[in-house]
């Protein structure tokens, strides 16, 4: 049971990273990214391939994952510079599907749908699985703390003020003297790097990744986490991620108590319960559990 709780805390931490990453680009800058699972997957594959096939140290794998996804994010922001709203949503969604399809079909690189197993984890095999779990939780907690501090610093800086201005009206932001495209590209890159880091940490924890880990459902859960926690609020992002993981796991037990259901029905009931719970949250707190607050003079 303790192991289970620790594992859930690790997954909550990884979701917190995803929600923080999404918050940079959607919460602060107002750019939709419905393909965040693509960056998540890209980071996971980058680090897994580097550390498994090339025996690179895990730290290097994490750094490479962040760099590769940042570059992909910057490229995406540059190519979609003139698109807004719906169109950006479609393109980012398409990007994540492309990542998944490439991972499924380029056997020489990714081993296709069989996935990559045996991804190294820090001290895995040299300590008991219980100790590994706890050590990994500490690493993830540290990553969440560092990324949270980074996001808070960005948000409260003059730079973050420009991002929030772009979120409200990017034309007026240009008239205010800001080079909007530079901010958009950077925000997308920073966000993608955080998502990629989360992906890499995921792979090193579970030791196995495959294309079907990176489905659009992950994107939806993260968007829900941020919305329920409070779009624009970094604390809210972490809280929302914890809430979503809690709901996912709580419904696992709750549906266990209901008898006479086929497994398929249980799975459907779980998703319905998660959706219902989030609806209640947003009905009671329309701007999320912790709404974004205005800066005071």
């Amino acid at each position: 049971m303790e192991n289970y709780l620790v594992a859930m805390a690790v997954f909550a931490g990884l979701y917190a990273l995803l929600a923080l990453g999404l918050n940079v680009v959607w919460g602060m800058t107002g750019m939709i990214n419905l393909g965040l699972v693509g960056f998540f997957g890209l980071g996971a594959y980058a680090s897994a391939l580097l550390t498994r096939a090339h025996r690179a140290p895990i730290v290097l794998g994490l750094a490479a994952a962040a760099l590769v996804t940042a570059a992909a994010g910057a490229a995406m922001a540059l190519t979609t510079a003139r698109l807004r709203g719906d169109y950006l949503a479609i393109i980012t969604l398409g990007f994540s599907e492309v990542v998944r399809l490439v991972a499924s079909n380029e056997l020489w690189l990714t081993n296709g749908t069989d996935g990559i197993s045996g991804i190294p984890g820090p001290w895995r095999g040299r300590v008991t699985p219980q100790t590994f779990n706890v050590v990994y939780l500490a690493i993830v907690a540290l990553a969440v703390l560092a990324v949270f501090a980074l996001c808070q610093r960005i948000r409260s800086s003059p730079y973050g003020r420009v991002l929030r201005a772009i979120r409200d009206d990017d034309q007026v932001a240009a008239v205010a003297g800001k080079r909007v495209i530079v901010f958009k590209v950077q925000a997308f890159a920073v966000s993608a790097a955080i998502l990629g880091l989360a992906g890499a940490l995921w792979g090193h924890y579970t030791s196995f990744i495959a294309p079907d880990v990176f489905t659009p459902l992950v994107t939806i859960y993260v968007v829900l986490a941020l919305t329920a926690g409070g779009t624009g609020n970094n604390v809210g992002a972490v809280l929302g991620a914890a809430l979503v993981i809690f709901l996912m796991e709580a419904t696992r037990f709750a549906t266990g108590w209901v008898g006479m259901l086929k497994p398929v029905q249980v799975a459907a009931l779980r998703e319905a319960l998660i959706g219902g719970a989030l609806l209640v949250v947003l009905r009671v707190r329309p701007r999320g559990l912790l709404p974004e607050r205005l800066a005071r003079s």
């Binding site: 003020r161 929030r164 201005a165 979120r167 009206d169 007026v172 205010a176 205005l294 800066a295 003079s297």
Partner: peptide
């Protein structure tokens, strides 16, 4: 009147 509704008046000014 366009601008930044979710920024404070002070932030609106300082931003420029």
């Amino acid at each position: 009147a366009r601008g930044f509704p979710r920024l404070s008046v002070l932030e609106n000014l300082v931003l420029y």
